[in-house]
């Protein structure tokens, strides 16, 4: 079985895995970081979005071996200490979630968007979240949250 080593939320991790282990399975089942969710498991819904080398990726559509040597950030690694990341705080402030299942992926995609486009318009936010599906909110408060979170990230 191949050995994979990567940095996850700043910690170096290494394990022998079956080659077909998905990155999301590695994160959830080997590392017990269950904040990253599996929704559709077909790369449509975005619940599994994490950052690989600083960029959003759907961890259900990536093998753990493909992330060998990479730096991975999950929702658990976004905040520093007990203070929420500005994007997390914005989702809380704007009630940008109901059941919360899509929220980790939504926030990871939103942070990726705001890093590339620090001051996105509403249309750019909606386009930027095309790969993340929410079945509760109707997106309105998510879009508001991302605008506030992006402003918070600008500082």
């Amino acid at each position: 079985m191949p050995t994979v080593s990567m940095t996850v939320n700043g910690q170096t991790v290494s394990a022998e895995v079956d080659g077909r282990t998905l990155l999301v399975e590695f994160i959830r089942e080997h590392l017990a970081l269950t904040g990253t969710h599996v929704g559709c498991d077909t790369s449509q819904c975005g619940a599994c979005v994490v950052h690989v080398n600083g960029e959003a990726a759907k961890s259900c559509t990536m093998l753990a071996v493909q992330a060998n040597g990479a730096s991975v950030t999950t929702i658990e690694g976004l905040s520093e200490g007990d203070d929420l990341h500005p994007m997390q705080a914005a989702f809380k402030d704007n009630h940008g979630l109901q059941c919360g299942f899509c929220t980790p992926g939504m926030i990871m995609s939103a942070v990726d968007l705001a890093k590339r486009n620090p001051n996105p318009t509403e249309a750019e936010i909606r386009k930027g979240l095309e790969g993340n599906i929410c079945r509760c909110t109707g997106y309105h408060n998510i879009v508001k949250a991302v605008a506030q979170g992006a402003a918070g990230m600008r500082g």
Binding site: S43, G46, V49, V52, E55, A56, A57, K58, T61, M62, S109, D112, L113, G128, E130, G131, N132
Partner: peptide, 9 residues
């Protein structure tokens, strides 16, 4: 093509 996460891969 696809969405941003797909375009990143």
């Amino acid at each position: 093509i696809g969405d941003q996460a797909v375009r990143n891969r």
